[in-house]
Design a protein around this nucleic acid. Structure first.
Lengths: 216, 216
DNA sequence: CTTTATTTTTGAACGCATTCAAAAACAGCT
DNA sequence: AGCTGTTTTTGAATGCGTTCAAAAATAAAG
C-alpha cells in the first residue's frame, strides 16, 4: 500500500496547503508549490489538473474530517438546533485558516462551466454527502411531510449562503456571522413549527410549488 | 464635448462587448480587443484597469438603460407583482446576450478583496440605484412597518440569487427561471400579506432581528 | 512660436497558470 | 537479462493578463 505515487501526491497537496496558509492562495504560485515539494512544475499538474484542484482536494479532506467528527456530535444531542449548529460550525472552523480557499471555491462555484463548482456534476458525491449530514441531523424530528424531503437540501443552501456571508464578515472571530447563523436558524425552526398549523396550508402549498420548480 | 479620448474609450468598450458576444469572454483576449479597436494593448489598460473593468462598464450601461426604461414601466401599473417583474425581467433581457459576462461578474462578486464586486465599495452607487428601483416599485404598497425599510434590499438580494439560478438554467429561454421567479415572488407577496396578521408578531420579530444583524 | 507640463499611445517585458514532447523510472513478461 | 508497455518526471515553451518606461500627441503658459 501507500505507493510512492500516492505519497508524492500527498506531499504536493500538503505543501500547497501549507503555502496557501502562510502566503495566501493567490500569492502562492504553482512553481512555488512544486519546488517546495521537491518536484518539477509539471508534476504538480500530473496530480492536479489545475491550481483549483488543490482547493477541491482540501474540500474533500474537510469532508473526511466531518465523517470522523460529526457522528459523535450528532449522537450527543437530540436537539435539532444544536445538531445543525454542530454541522455549520464545523465548516466555519475548517475554513477558518483558509478563508482565501473558500473564496477560490465560491469563485469557481458561480461558473456553470467549471468542473469543480460545488454545484456541478463532478462534486455531486461530496455535495450529497454534505446534504446528508443535515438529513441525519433531522432524524427523529417531525417536519411537515410535504417539505420534509427538501429540507436537507435547503439547509445546505442556507449553509452556502452563510459561508458567503462569513467570507465577507470582518468582525473578530466572525462574530456577526455567528449571530446571523443562530438568528436565521431560530427563524427557520420557528417557521417549521408554524408550518404545521392548518392556517399555513396555502403558504406551504406555495413553498412546495417553488421547491418543485427548483428541483434539479 | 465628446473628446477624442472619450471616443477611444467607447470604441474599446464597444469592440470588447462585440467580441465577448461573438467569441465569449474567456476566449477574447485583451490583445484581441485592443487590436480590433485599433489601439495598442496598453491603451486598453489605460482606459480600463483590468479585463473585468469592461464587465463593470457593461453593467453600468445596463443601469443607464434601466434608467431609461423602468420609469415608464413602473408608471404603467400600480400592481406590485407586475412592477417587480418588470425590474427583474429587464435584467434577464439585458444579460441574455452576455451570460458569460454575468459569470465573470458573480465570480468577482464572491471575492471580498476584489474592487469590482457587486457587493463591494466601488460598486455601491450602482448597487444602491438598483435597490432603489425596488423601493420605487413598492411605493404606494403597504407593507409591515418594521420590515418595510429592509424590503428593497431584500428584493435586490432575491434578484441576485435568481440571476445565479438563471445562469445555470439551461432550459430554452430560461423558462424554468421564469417560473421560479414568479413562484417565489408569489410566495413573497403572500408572506407580506400574512405578515400583517397579528398572529405573525413573533415571526416578524425574529425576521427583524435577523435583518438587524445582517445590516451593513 | 517655444517651452513646459499633461494626457495618451505604444509595444516590449514580466509573471504566472498551464501544456507538452521527450526522458526516466518502473512493471510485467519471456 | 532483455524487451515492451505504462506511469511518472522533467523543464522548456505557450498564451494571456497586466505592467511599465519611453515616445508621441496635445494642451497650457510665456
Amino acid at each position: 500500500m501507500a505507493k510512492k505515487s500516492e505519497e508524492t501526491r500527498e506531499r504536493i497537496l500538503d505543501t500547497s496547503l501549507a503555502l496557501f496558509r502562510e502566503r495566501g492562495f493567490d500569492a502562492t504560485t504553482m512553481r512555488d508549490v512544486a519546488s517546495e515539494a521537491g518536484v518539477a512544475t509539471g508534476a504538480a499538474y500530473y496530480y492536479f489538473r489545475a491550481k483549483e484542484d488543490l482547493v477541491l482536494a482540501f474540500y474533500l479532506r474537510t469532508a473526511d474530517e466531518a465523517r470522523e467528527l460529526l457522528p459523535e456530535q450528532l449522537a450527543a444531542t437530540k436537539e435539532l438546533r444544536k445538531r445543525i449548529l454542530a454541522i455549520v460550525n464545523l465548516k466555519y472552523e475548517q475554513f477558518a485558516e483558509h478563508r482565501e480557499l473558500l473564496t477560490a471555491m465560491l469563485k469557481v462555484g458561480t461558473d456553470p462551466r467549471h468542473p469543480l463548482s460545488p454545484f456541478g456534476k463532478e462534486t455531486k458525491a461530496i455535495r450529497e454527502e454534505s446534504i446528508d449530514w443535515f438529513a441525519r441531523a433531522l432524524e427523529g424530528t417531525s417536519v411537515p411531510k410535504d417539505i420534509g424531503p427538501y429540507l436537507p437540501r435547503l439547509l445546505w443552501l442556507w449553509q452556502m449562503a452563510l459561508l458567503m456571508y462569513w467570507l465577507w464578515d470582518e468582525t473578530p472571530g466572525q462574530r456577526r456571522t455567528q449571530k446571523l447563523t443562530e438568528a436565521t436558524l431560530d427563524l427557520i425552526l420557528q417557521l417549521l413549527k408554524l408550518g404545521s398549523l392548518p392556517l399555513m396550508g396555502p403558504v406551504r402549498k406555495r413553498v412546495v410549488k417553488v421547491l418543485r420548480i427548483a428541483e434539479e
